[in-house]
Design a binder for these strands. Structure first.
Lengths: 102, 102
DNA sequence: GACGTAATTGGCTGTTTTGCCAAATAGGCA
DNA sequence: TGCCTATTTGGCAAAACAGCCAATTACGTC
């Protein structure tokens, strides 16, 4: 049961999401499709860094890309991932509650 | 917006979840409270490794612990995290679909 | 106090991740 | 062809993570 391959699959997806910039990217792509240069401008990191983040997300199956002339447009595949944000923020607020009690 | 501290908070929680063994632990704790030795037996890893995983989850605010004599019992704080599993499995199945098309 | 069990922590090593720069690739246009 | 823009990739060094063993702490019992 421990070696249930689903845990490995899931941890791969979660690992891909486990980065502030990548969460921000998913948030942006939830609103609309973006090309890399738009994302790069909003994020402010090096273009190569943004590109690597996108590769991680794509490899995890979270986003897809299409090429239009010399631009690459990315979009979110499963909008449900944004629902995760709410739960995770709830975890965080409970954490604060608990710390407050100590 | 990129440096919205919420993305940092969330990535911390997601990073804590992004490990097969830790997802398994959350699954077990969702069903019921467990002490470390029970978890260790089910997981099969070294006790010290299990303890470190538990520390990661606790530090992220996902679980809490209480000591009873010389045992430590852990329980899940936010059952909502298990809802995440469904979404993540959906991401994975879509990934396979897309790969099938290539 | 000595001993046994449960759990955590220190220390180490190998692996993975991150982010930058520079180089390479791909497409459009003069 | 040569140049420009958009994007990805190679290579590197710093940081973080993972997992094991050994040592330590904490609690109960004799």
């Amino acid at each position: 049961m421990k070696d249930d391959i689903r845990y490995t699959y899931m941890s791969g997806v979660m690992k891909a999401m486990a980065h502030p910039t990548r969460l921000y990217i998913l948030d942006l792509l939830h609103k609309q499709e973006h090309c890399v240069c738009e994302l790069q401008e909003k994020i402010g990191d090096d273009m190569s860094t943004v590109s690597r983040h996108l590769a991680v997300l794509k490899n995890a199956g979270l986003i897809s890309s299409r090429k239009v002339s010399n631009q690459v447009w990315y979009k979110l595949l499963c909008p449900c991932v944004l629902d995760i944000y709410e739960c995770v923020m709830e975890v965080n607020s409970r954490k604060k509650e608990i710390r407050g009690k100590l």
